[in-house]
Amino acid sequence: MSPLNIKKGSSSHSAYDLRDSNAQAEESHTLAVIVENEPGVLARVIGLFSGRGYNIDSLTVAEVDHTGHLSRITIVTRGTPAVIDQIEAQLSRMVPVHAVHDLTADGPSVQRELALFKVAGKGEARIEALRLAEIFRANVVDSTLESFVFEMTGTPEKIDAFAELMRPLGLREIARTGVAALARGA
């Protein structure tokens, strides 16, 4: 084996996974961080991002294993490959962190976000909003004579697209949950 051709680890946060340092373009990565569900863990993780100047585009957290006392933090972040590697290594070494999965690097994954949209309007705009909602498979979860609240689940891109379409039709407010993601396959 040639000295520089070290077997790449399967786990993407291993330092063996060397990528081209000249590739300076920023990439978006979705990380799933499995942490002990104890006070201060979220602050610790967020503090790492602010303290070291990393980006957070989206963040969700909830307990996923009640008996095991584990929470899953899903973080969408941006950075050059070297920065992404650092983020993963820095997360991995935190004491309450059990595992870090880079869903972007590890293969195909599904990403979903839930959003609520309040759209107010009358006449044509109102009808158009409802028509588009059907096309996007958004549900009406509240309606008055002047407004709708739509609920939609989809990729962040789909939610962005729907929001763009609603804007001229009277979009008043959006609430988004942030991304939840899982790797595809077993």
Binding site: P3, L4, I6, H13, S14, A15, Y16, L18, S21, A82, D85, Q86, A89, Q90, S92, R93
Partner: peptide
């Protein structure tokens, strides 16, 4: 592992 490739990229990392 976070010390490796943080500042200087290396050819042979050993954790």
């Amino acid at each position: 592992a976070s010390s490796i490739n943080k500042v200087i990229r290396v050819d042979v990392p050993i954790i």
